[in-house]
């Protein structure tokens, strides 16, 4: 091998190696140094809250019903709560409908409309579980009405509430609060007032909640 060949191929290997190493390093760094935000707004009675106020851990999610990742976390959170109990973890959901999801806003409105009849969490569950059915439909209203029938809502009231300006304002307020705090995506979780990096498994999630529970103080 001439020195020129060694130089050509050696240089190529070094450059490709540096690129891959640089990309991996940058990715790890951005994961590690992700700035963990404080909870944007304190929890108030008008929030959607599930679980005991005495629970040592409060978990807040900023979510978007049309986001596939939120759907994955929905079943994780469901399992988390059923395993740890609602006396250990109190769950709060806030809307963060992303602009690229055409049906995010209307699905949030559907949850709010169900909420005005006391069935927010029932609609919340259906929206996530059936996400595939409505995510890419041009006008998902009739699908949401079907869900409303399934959970025995007053359909006329539900339809009117779907266009409620007040509900829309509330959703936008949730969203704006999140943006102001620096949230850039969904889901974003907060445990006892501090953001957590989204856990990659149910076990990791349970560890975080258990640690927070033993650490104790709920703000």
């Amino acid at each position: 091998m001439t020195s020129k060949r060694i130089f050509t191929w050696g240089g190529f290997v070094v450059i490709v190696g540096l690129i891959i190493w640089g990309l991996i390093a940058a990715e790890m760094k951005s994961n590690k140094e992700q700035e963990l935000l404080p909870l944007p707004e304190q929890i108030v009675a008008t929030d959607h809250i599930k679980g005991s106020e005495m629970a040592p851990v409060t978990l807040v999610e900023y979510g978007d019903f049309q986001c596939p990742a939120c759907q994955t976390y929905h079943s994780m959170v469901e399992q988390l709560i059923s395993e740890l109990g609602s006396s250990t973890v109190r769950f709060v959901f806030r809307h963060f409908p992303l602009a690229q999801h055409a049906n995010a806003m209307i699905s949030s409105l559907a949850a709010e409309a169900a909420g005005s009849q006391g069935k927010f969490w029932e609609m919340y569950d259906i929206l996530y579980k059936e996400q595939r059915e409505w995510e890419n439909v041009k006008d998902p209203t009739s699908i949401f009405v079907k869900y409303a029938q399934n959970i025995n809502l007053d359909i006329e009231k539900f339809k009117t509430d779907l266009t409620s300006e007040q509900a829309k304002e509330r959703i936008i307020n949730d969203y704006k609060g999140g943006v102001k705090a620096g949230i850039v995506g969904t889901p974003t979780f907060f445990v006892n007032g501090k953001q957590i990096a989204s856990p990659k498994s149910l076990n990791e999630f349970k560890d975080i909640i258990n640690k927070a529970a033993t650490a104790g103080v709920n703000p």
């Binding site: 596939p68 999801h101 995506g185």
Partner: peptide, 15 residues
Amino acid sequence: FQNNIPPCTTDGCEK
């Protein structure tokens, strides 16, 4: 390969 569950971000790539 790093993200088991890629989050939805405002840039819209996750879709």
